[in-house]
Design a protein around this nucleic acid. Structure first.
Lengths: 102, 102
DNA sequence: ACGATAATTAGACAATTGTATAAATATCTC
DNA sequence: GAGATATTTATACAATTGTCTAATTATCGT
């Protein structure tokens, strides 16, 4: 798992950007106007997200359209489940109690 | 999803600590000796992980034993799957294409 | 080519964070 | 209680990061 992925997810503005992009693809401007910070700051965040491969950018005439790269999320989920057994339900009762401890 | 969770995961040393704890519970000292940084620095990282509820600490005489809190990982995986549809396999062929877009 | 719009890049600065050393707290053994 | 061991807390500092303004690049429309 790449370090840049976790660092990218560590900022709340960036996570909001990602959530925005789940609804639909958006241009940098459409994204930026959703936030109270400067345009250039959002652009910087988009750069971080792109570097982490969480989003992809594609020029569309004057605009640049961003879309979510869902593959990376899938890899992250797999990492979490593999390393930390984070996939199991374990709601309330009937705990497996598979502690392979010595 | 709490901000502290993502911030906690953003540091590679802390992720290594978490991976260590998947194998077995360990005392602060056992954890610290695995890293080339100062004891107090590891202790600080443990504090961050505890604040994010990623680990739980329990005093055991002179020692303090840390264990992984798998519940939080499960919540994280659920968040990722819910928000970003990151649970689907989508390996190669037969794409579901369930875009509920307008 | 020129001016307007869209977006990024550069440079600066304040806030946050990771690490270190030193001091403090807690438990154990004698 | 004194000394040793285990760990945390306090303080300081350097590195990283988020934000800003200004400058730059790219495309569009005329």
């Amino acid at each position: 798992m790449d370090d840049s992925l976790f660092r990218a997810l560590a900022d709340p503005t960036r996570r909001k950007i990602l959530e925005l992009l789940t609804k639909k693809d958006r241009t940098a401007g459409e994204i930026a106007e959703q936030f109270p910070i400067a345009f250039a700051s959002v652009s910087h965040h988009l750069g971080v997200l792109k570097a982490a491969d969480l989003v992809a950018a594609e020029r569309e005439g004057q605009f640049i359209r961003y879309r979510l790269n869902t593959t990376v999320f899938q890899e992250l989920v797999r990492y979490l489940m593999d390393r930390f057994g984070a996939g199991e339900a374990e709601a309330d009762g009937a705990r497996g109690e598979s502690k392979s401890n010595a």
